[in-house]
Design a protein around this nucleic acid. Structure first.
Length: 634
RNA sequence: GCUGGUGUAGCUCAGUGGUAGAGCAGCUGAUUCGUAAUCAGCAGGUCGUGCGUUCAAAUCGCAUCACCAGCUCCA
């Protein structure tokens, strides 16, 4: 007999050799029906696994990450089987489950088209209906290699050959289909109740552009049709808040063919930009920063000295002025350092916090461009802090606090990553170690949870990245704090210490918004275009019912305009419903409807975005609470 | 950059070899209206760009540019 401990802590005894499926049935038939895979002693395994030892067991359903993963992985096998049935001779590469579904990479003479996806889906439905059992089989390395060689599956052969010599090798069979796979899988193809093929794309074998490009088919799968439909609706919702679409509709910004990756801002987008910059300046003034502005074009010598000319060349735009090479700045740091070096500094100046809203240009691959999220010119809300080595930890903690304040204003949650030395880097391992430790200490002292990203640092130093979570759960990298021992060295930066001698300062580079452009893109999607009043392009729209109230409307307008409110009057001879509809689509936070009644009593009929008609209100009270809402950035 | 797809009026889109169309937006006029679309009229296009095939090209071919999706999730 063996002892099985369940998730709730209870234990039961079973005959050795019993399958997990039988145990699940013993626990509850309902659970057994929903069961997809199981976690036995912390390892996710098939339900058909026989248990021969004591252990802890958790039955996994689609609600669990492991169950979800297994179902989608099985769906990938079903898809591969369907593809092989319809297009014999197709070679299989890899087919894993991913965050929202799964994919499989194929190498085929045939070029898959969207029509093929429908055919493949139909064939998959048949396979699901056949309810084929997925059977695991362990085989030796040689057998596996021979078998796949015979089938001409060269990618599978390559995968096996790259596995460590002692790695166990397993196959999964379902009917006439067999695939190299570590598993686990759900018991049978019938479990893949609801699925859909989503898209078609090219993908390099093993992600390297040196290899052949394969054809990738993406799909998703759920245990119930209703869940699939919910997911598809969610995608539709996300599309509706796409910042490129909203940016166009709300006239915030645009990109044109004449400037790929170089965004244009309309007046309404500029309001948002300026409000974000105003807020940024207010915060930075409070936190003791001084603002700088450095030139966009600087000579080659400078970029050679900073290391950019060698380490960042492929991303830089260059130009020639009077027969001399110049570069358009991809970063603001060298400029800030020139300002630093133009004066003598004392340790008493430290920490010296300088900030700059710096417009930088970087050559991104054409295929990587994406609305405001990935552009070729953007404004970094940069800052460079110069200090004594002993001030590092405190200073970084201060930056972390500043970020928390700013992100909090927009209601963003975020997570933090620590990136370490990349392959292409300047400086000794000792320096990198020291810098990385300093960042770690600050994070630990702030009790921040963080994930380590090996090799993802900047070429001059390690960094802490801040990933914001938007209202529909996606994450975006915005803030970053980078510690730099290299540039102070390269630029021979100094300060005069207590001892009257020259010493080397340490510097931090950091951005909070990251890029103003990207941040606006993120805000647009986060709020679905319904921006908080404090940075809404139009805050109040006055809607007179007829021309008779124009004069009264103008009075209200003047009063609001006077105190800095962004207010408009819709004086067209349209019906009130029409004006409301339009203001609603523009996502204006407040509408003041004024008819004869209001004009006579000197009141307003207030309408609030998202809440509708609020009834009659006193104008003075409205104005007061509006100003308060803006002041508090609610 | 690579693979695939797309490109027609300001926007959303129809138009598969015979001289280009709708809705919305715009303009003009009428309407003066109480909480998400009043009516009528007008105007708007070298069909992304270039070259080619053809008696004839938005439509077919080649090139080029831009956009979209993916190329990061590794049996």
């Amino acid at each position: 007999m063996i002892k099985i401990t369940l998730k709730d802590g209870s234990a039961k005894e079973y005959q050795a050799g019993i399958t997990i499926k039988k145990i699940a049935e013993d626990i509850s038939m309902g659970l057994a029906k929903k069961a997809l895979v199981a976690k036995f002693n912390d390892k996710v395994v098939d339900l058909s696994t026989e248990v021969n030892e004591d252990g802890t067991l958790e039955i996994l359903t689609f609600e669990d990450e492991g169950g979800k993963h297994a179902l989608r992985h099985t769906a990938a096998h079903v898809m591969a089987q369907a593809v092989l049935r319809l297009f014999p001779g197709t070679k299989l590469a890899i087919g894993p489950a991913i965050a929202d579904g799964y994919y499989y990479d194929f190498d085929s003479e045939h070029k898959f088209t969207p029509d093929d996806l429908e055919k493949i889906e139909k064939e998959m439905k048949k396979i699901v209906k056949e309810d084929l059992a997925l059977v695991r089989e362990s085989i030796s390395r040689e057998e596996a290699i021979n078998m796949f060689k015979e089938q001409g599956e060269q990618y599978k052969v390559e995968l096996i050959e790259d596995l460590p010599a002692d790695a166990p090798i397993s196959l999964y069979r379902q009917g006439d289909f067999v695939d190299l796979c570590a598993g686990p899988h759900v018991p049978s193809t019938g479990k893949v109740k609801a699925f859909k093929l989503m898209s078609l794309a090219g993908a390099y074998w093993r992600g390297s552009e040196k290899n052949k490009m394969l054809q990738r088919i993406y799909g998703t799968a759920f245990p119930k049709k209703s869940e699939l439909e919910e997911y598809l609706t969610r995608i539709e919702e996300a599309k509706k808040r796409d910042h490129r679409k909203l940016g166009q509709e709300l006239k915030l910004f645009t990109v044109m063919e004449e400037g790929p990756g170089f965004p244009f801002f309309y007046p309404k987008g500029m309001v948002i930009r300026n409000e974000l910059e105003n807020y940024w300046r207010e915060i930075h003034r409070k936190w003791g920063y001084q603002e700088l502005k450095t030139p966009i074009i600087l000579n080659r010598q400078l970029w050679e000295r900073s290391g950019h000319w060698f380490h960042y060349r492929e991303n830089m735009y260059t130009t020639v002025i009077d027969e001399e090479d110049y570069a358009i700045k991809p970063m603001n740091c060298p400029g800030a350092i020139l300002i630093y070096n133009s004066e003598l500094h004392s340790y008493r100046d430290f920490p010296l916090r300088t900030s700059e809203l710096g417009l930088v240009h970087r050559h991104e691959l054409s295929g990587a461009l994406h609305g405001l999220m990935r552009v070729r010119s953007f404004t970094q809300d940069d800052a460079h802090i110069f200090m004594l080595p002993s001030q590092i930890t405190e200073e970084i903690k201060g930056v972390i606090d500043l970020f928390a304040t700013m992100y909090g204003t927009f209601g963003f949650e975020y997570n933090v990553e620590l990136s370490t030395k990349p392959e292409k880097a300047m400086g000794s391992d000792e320096d990198w170690d020291m810098a990385t430790k300093a960042l770690e200490v600050a994070l630990k002292e702030k009790n921040m949870k963080y994930q380590v990203n090996p090799g993802d640092g900047a070429f001059y130093g390690p960094k802490i990245d801040f990933h914001l979570k938007d209202s529909i759960g996606r994450t975006w990298q915005c803030g970053t704090i980078q510690l730099d021992f290299q540039l102070p060295e390269r630029f021979d930066m100094t300060y005069v210490g207590e001892d009257g001698q020259k010493h080397r300062p340490v510097m931090i580079h950091r951005t909070c918004y990251g890029s103003i452009e990207r941040f606006i893109g993120i805000l647009t999607e986060h709020y679905a275009g319904a921006f908080p009043t404090w940075f809404a392009p139009v805050q109040v729209k006055i809607l007179p019912i007829t021309e008779r109230q124009l004069e009264y409307a103008k009075e209200l307008y003047d009063e609001l305009f006077e105190v800095g409110i962004r207010v408009e009057i819709d004086d067209r001879s349209e019906k009130i419903g029409y004006k409301i509809r339009e203001a609603q689509l523009e996502k204006v936070p407040y509408m003041l409807v004024v008819g004869d009644k209001e004009a006579e009593n000197k009141t307003i009929a207030l309408r609030k975005r998202g809440e509708g008609d609020k009834g009659t209100a006193e104008f003075a009270e409205f104005k007061q609470s509006l100003l308060e809402e803006i002041r508090l950035k609610k």
